[in-house]
Amino acid sequence: MDALVRARGLGRAFGRVRALQQVDLDLRPGEIVGLVGPSGAGKTTLVRTLALLQHPDEGTLELFGRAVRPANLGELRRRIGYMPQSYALYEELSARTNVAFFGRGVSAQRVDRLLAFLGLSERADSAVATMSGGMKQRVSLACALAAEPQLLLLDEPTAGIDPVLRGRFWHEFRRLRDDGASLLVSTHQIDEAVHCDRLLIVRAGRRIADLTPEALLRRAGTTVHVEYADGTSEQRRFEADDAGLLDWLRGLDRDRVRRIDVRNDTLESLIVDLMTTAAEAPDA
């Protein structure tokens, strides 16, 4: 099926700061793409650009197979669910009123179902101002989901919430994907990468990788650190499935070795490596 989002060479500068540079992205129906990068990498600028709240200085953007133009902004936006990084809710109003308002006329039953699903039924009529941060985050998600959008752009939806709620959010994201929606989920919490079908890793406004977690894990290697009785040490790195690892270990002089530390790369450590060292895009 055609991509819901097709971005080519997106760029955006704020004064002298180039927040986005030459970013390409395809988002296909039924996938969760994790937008991963350190703070200031350009994640929010990219999400806001795709949510049609910011215009790119350069590059082309197609949503739902159509080029974005001033004339079709409203129509395209109605098919997008956007969850900003801040709560962006009317604090004086209830959760129910907020969801109904941002749902632009969705049925009362739909609002009730959403609030129930996110565990907010009991507080549905409380003013948002009286809620905890986690609850506000859930109300904010409900607002993004209200109109049953095909494309969900979620800007750090799990920032600042407890691990249990994070788990529930990701469970919900997978359910939405299984129902056919596409999600772009930005995060700087690298452990969340495991939940994604694909990872778009960005740094300093540039895309440095676009690959599946499995493809990244295939690059996982093992680092062995050996300490000797005489106080010296050595470190060796072996690529995945490198038979040399065992031979090397067997070849060590057992009488001299005081301690061996074997560390396998994890998805998280691979991403950190990419974010800190990669210069060019090693796309899968």
Partner: peptide, 14 residues
């Protein structure tokens, strides 16, 4: 400032 204007625009209010 609160982001609600952006959110209104994002959901399609003209």
């Amino acid at each position: 400032r609160d982001g609600t204007l952006g959110r209104m625009l994002a959901v399609g209010y003209s």
